[in-house]
Design a protein around this nucleic acid. Structure first.
Length: 285
DNA sequence: CATTTCACCTGGTGGC
DNA sequence: TGCCACCAGGTGAAAT
């Protein structure tokens, strides 16, 4: 499901519903994947902690946790020093992070259930198990940081520098999370289309003007997608189980053979970096 | 080091 | 209906 706009939507939705609540009971499944640390240890680490906030970093959802506490859950105002641990959720291809009532039916492929003091549950569901669940104690490791730059914050010069001298296809470069954090297959294709750039162009051969068009197009398409709750291509839903609407705005992604919305040329599908890639041969040079 | 390929999983779709 | 090939929002290890 999940690229930057979808992950942002999920993180905001979870944050709105569980911030200040406390984890009182944890059930984790028995598969090796998606647990980066053994499930039994992870469950023990999570129990009793207050949820101080939930935010997106790249394609990761980072839940900030306080120390183990008894009594009433509390506080909406969080100080950085209150955060002693993090629970990091990556949704992979098919992961869902849902906030539900305890009575809600348990979906197949549910791998984690966190029962909260309020009675709500946080559930992680992931059929393909490409997702990852990781617990980090901040006394033992540093806080989670994405290796790549945030596409919505990076400025023109830094953006251009990312691609300088690179021989790989611009599409492959956009997908590289250590350059830009959060861009996936949908928004790579959509931003290249809006910037008028063919996906197979060598990243290092793009002009400064083209790179700036790309940066702006990417920023706009991500911003618009967040506003519409992300793209629901097959089964993506937000923390409340609600689909997004940005798939209605797609100009090329999964529109092979359909007419370009600008020039009517048939949208073409190729494979770049091992991924389906869609573009308009007329509008993109 | 930069780049490419492939394995990791399950489920849906469409052809025969 | 069954079987099979192919495809899917991602990534990290191994190969080149």
């Amino acid at each position: 499901m999940p690229e930057l706009p979808e992950v942002e939507t999920v993180a905001r939705g979870v944050d709105a519903r569980v911030r200040g609540d406390r984890i009182v009971d944890v059930w984790l499944g028995s598969h090796k994947q998606p647990f980066k640390t053994p499930a039994v240890k992870q469950a023990k680490d999570l129990e009793g902690r207050t949820i101080l906030g939930v935010a997106r970093v790249g394609k990761h959802i980072v839940m900030s946790l306080g120390g183990i506490a008894q009594g009433k859950p509390l506080k909406k105002d969080v100080k950085r020093e209150d955060v002693t641990a993090q629970w990091i959720v990556h949704l992979g291809m098919t992961g869902r992070l849902l906030v539900t009532t305890p009575e809600a039916e348990i979906a197949p492929h549910t791998h984690a259930r966190l029962t909260l003091h309020s009675g709500k549950e946080i559930r992680f569901v992931d059929p393909r198990r490409f997702g990852r669940l990781e617990f980090r104690e901040l006394s033992k490791s540093s806080g989670f940081e994405a290796p790549g730059a945030e596409p919505l914050r990076i400025e023109a010069e830094a953006f251009a520098a990312l691609f300088k001298g690179r021989k790989l296809a611009i599409k492959a470069a956009l997908l590289n999370q250590s350059l830009l954090a959060g861009v996936g297959n949908i928004y790579a294709d959509e931003s290249l289309n809006r910037a008028g750039i063919r996906p197979r162009r060598r990243a290092g051969a793009l002009t400064r003007k083209e790179l700036e068009q790309l940066r702006v197009a990417l920023s706009e398409v991500l911003t618009q997608a967040i506003k519409l709750g992300g793209s629901s291509v097959s089964d993506y839903v937000d923390a409340n189980g609600v689909k997004g609407f940005f798939q209605l705005e797609h100009r090329v992604y999964q529109r092979t053979g359909e007419p370009c919305r600008t020039c009517k040329t048939s949208i073409r599908r190729i494979v770049v970096a091992g991924r389906s890639t869609h573009y308009c041969p007329t509008c993109q040079k």
